[in-house]
Amino acid sequence: MSEEHDDSRPLPPEPPQEGECCEDGCGEACVWEQYHEARAEYARALAEWQARQAPEPAG
């Protein structure tokens, strides 16, 4: 059985909603820190996806 590979464009993460951040410097579990890590992962995944979408050089 052939498995289809979904190579759709990655979607950016949603920023924290109002009220999700306690605004108390909570440290390692901060929703903003998690969001920034997710944004970095998204940027990496997007760059990889864009490279896969680039046309093959004619040769």
Rank of each mutant, 00 (worst) to 15 (best):
Asp6Ala: 09
Leu11Gln: 15
Ala40Lys: 13
Ala38Leu: 08
Pro55Val: 04
Trp32Lys: 00
Glu23Leu: 10
Cys30Glu: 06
Gly59Cys: 04
Asp6Gly: 01
Cys26Ala: 02
Glu23Ala: 08
His5Lys: 13
Arg52Cys: 10
Pro12Ala: 01
Tyr42Gln: 00
Val31Glu: 03
Glu23Asp: 11
Glu18Trp: 08
Ser8Cys: 06
Gly59Pro: 11
Glu28Gln: 12
Pro10Gln: 05
His5Gln: 14
Ala54Glu: 14
Cys26Lys: 06
Glu41Phe: 07
Glu33Tyr: 12
Ala29Val: 15
His36Ile: 12
His5Phe: 11
Ala51Ser: 08
Ala45Gly: 04
Gln34Thr: 12
Pro57His: 05
Glu37Ile: 08
Gln17Phe: 04
Ala38Ser: 10
Tyr35Gln: 01
Ala58Gln: 12
Pro15Tyr: 06
Ala58Ile: 08
Ser2Trp: 07
Ala51Trp: 02
Arg9Asp: 01
Leu11Cys: 12
Ala38Asn: 02
Ala38Ile: 00
Arg9Cys: 14
His36Leu: 14
Ala51Val: 01
Ala43Glu: 14
Met1Gln: 12
Pro57Asn: 09
Glu56Gly: 08
Cys30Pro: 04
Glu33Gln: 14
Glu18Tyr: 11
Cys30Asn: 03
Tyr35Cys: 02
Tyr42Cys: 06
Glu4Pro: 15
Asp24Lys: 10
Glu18Cys: 02
Gly27Asn: 05
Pro57Lys: 01
Gln50Arg: 10
Glu28Val: 10
Glu48Ala: 13
Trp32Tyr: 13
Glu3Leu: 11
Cys22Asn: 14
Glu28Asp: 14
His5Thr: 15
Ser2Thr: 09
Trp49Asp: 06
Glu4His: 04
Arg9Thr: 01
Ala40Leu: 09
Gly27Gln: 02
Met1Cys: 11
Gly19Glu: 05
Arg39Met: 14
Glu3Trp: 07
Ser2Pro: 15
Ala54Val: 01
Asp7His: 13
Met1Glu: 13
Gln53Glu: 12
Gly27Leu: 06
Arg52Ile: 03
Trp32Leu: 09
Leu11His: 11
Leu46Asp: 03
Glu23His: 09
Glu28Thr: 10
Trp49Gly: 00
Pro16Ile: 02
Ser8Gln: 05
Trp49Val: 05
Pro55Gln: 02
Glu41Asp: 14
Ala40Thr: 13
Asp6Ile: 10
Arg52Asp: 14
Cys21Trp: 03
Ala51Glu: 14
Gln34Met: 12
Glu18Arg: 11
Val31Cys: 11
Pro15His: 04
Pro13Asp: 07
Ser8Glu: 10
Pro15Ile: 08
Arg39Gln: 15
Glu14Asp: 11
Gln17Leu: 13
Glu56Trp: 09
His5Ile: 15
Arg52Gly: 14
Gly19Val: 04
Ala51Pro: 10
Glu37Asn: 11
Gly19Ser: 01
Cys21Arg: 04
Ala29Ser: 15
Glu37Val: 05
Gly25Phe: 07
Asp24Gly: 10
Pro57Leu: 02
Tyr42Trp: 10
Gly25Asn: 05
Glu48Ser: 06
Ala58Trp: 05
Gly25Val: 00
Glu23Gln: 09
Leu46Glu: 09
Leu46Pro: 08
Ala47Glu: 14
Pro13Tyr: 03
Glu4Met: 05
Ala29Asp: 15
His36Tyr: 15
Pro55Thr: 01
Arg9Gln: 13
Leu46Ser: 05
Pro55Ala: 03
Val31Ser: 02
Glu37Asp: 13
Ala51Gly: 09
Gln50Phe: 03
Gln34Val: 08
Ala40Cys: 07
Ala29Arg: 15
Pro16Asn: 06
Glu28Cys: 01
Ala47Lys: 08
Gln53Asp: 04
